[in-house]
């Protein structure tokens, strides 16, 4: 359980990191919090020749308020996001989802950029990114690119990032004042990757949903939006029957994979249950009558 031989490079500026990434290309892997990559190295399932350690680049770690969004540096620890009052008030879905990531020691090392770049389909952040419509800033020596969350997650552990690109900043739109959100998930044990999780972000006007975003994790090759379910809630509101319909639509829409912990069918059923619970929580939090 030791990694194969590799070099660890420790840039202290973004420019330096980009130069290294450009020079080493696919032979390099950026190292963020290491909570997924290090075990993969130890199992020799990931075999980069070079690790570009981002932990000494101070400018990659920040949470900053802008007029209509929050900007988060990719090396911001999950624990810092969990404890940020700014995020709790302006993007509560992100905050709630963060509390459900693994366990405290993992959140203390793990970073938002590492999790998004890793694109584990069962992880919380990709679903939140889709529901809150993050924009992801990727930089390379060739320049800067702004990628919509919807275009970012391509397949299991695969993103739109090119080998010479580094995710550097996350743009989190502020949630509207008339909105409410919830993140619910289920795992066999507390802290495990979700068997199914649902992020819900709904804007209400006079008690009626006007903007509905539902995203699921753990139920396919990537996190995804549950558009059929969204449409039902947008059309029929968030009453008991509509929630039931939306849950059924969510379960029908996903194509989960079976593994040791759950069959595809069980996961599909759980997606329905998590959709229902997320919607119920949103309704309750918004204080709208069903």
């Amino acid at each position: 359980m030791k990694p194969p031989p590799l070099d660890i490079l420790t840039p202290t500026t973004i420019a330096e990191a980009l130069a290294l990434l450009s020079a080493h290309g696919e032979a390099a892997r950026p190292l963020a919090g290491g909570q997924s990559l290090v075990p993969l190295l130890n199992f020799r399932l990931s075999r980069p020749e070079v690790l570009i350690d981002l932990n000494r680049i101070a400018k990659l770690s920040f949470i900053e308020e802008r007029p209509d969004h929050i900007a988060i540096g990719v090396m911001t620890r999950e624990r810092a996001i969990e404890e940020s009052e700014l995020i709790a008030s302006q993007a509560p879905l992100l905050q709630e989802a963060t509390t459900q990531i693994a366990h405290l020691p993992i959140r203390s090392r793990g970073t938002i950029g590492g999790s998004l770049s890793n694109a584990d389909p069962a992880a919380e952040y990709p679903a939140v990114a889709l529901a809150l419509e993050f924009e992801l800033i990727a930089q390379s020596e060739r320049g800067e690119r702004r990628i919509k969350a919807a275009d970012f997650f391509e397949d299991v552990l695969t993103t739109a990032l090119k080998p010479d690109e580094l995710l550097t900043k996350i743009i989190v739109p502020k949630s509207p004042g008339q909105s409410s959100s919830a993140f619910v998930e289920i795992a066999r044990r507390h802290g495990d990757f979700a068997l199914a999780g649902v992020a819900a972000q709904i804007t209400f006007s006079a008690g009626k949903p006007t903007d509905v975003r539902l995203a699921v994790c753990g139920a396919g090759s990537t996190a995804s939006r549950l558009s059929a379910a969204e449409e039902i809630v947008l059309r029929d509101g968030a009453g008991v029957e509509a929630i039931k319909g939306a849950s059924a639509a969510a379960a029908a829409a996903v194509d989960p994979m079976a593994d040791l912990h759950a069959s595809a069918d069980y996961r599909r059923r759980l997606v329905g249950v998590m959709t229902k619970r997320a919607l119920q929580k949103v309704v309750q939090r918004a204080g709208v009558s069903a």
Binding site: F43, H190, G191, F193, L260, H261
Partner: peptide, 16 residues
């Protein structure tokens, strides 16, 4: 054997 790590062989933790 599919349970080659604690990701797959699940031990009860304090919360369980």
């Amino acid at each position: 054997l599919m349970t080659g790590s604690f990701m797959d062989y699940l031990l009860p933790t304090a919360s369980d």
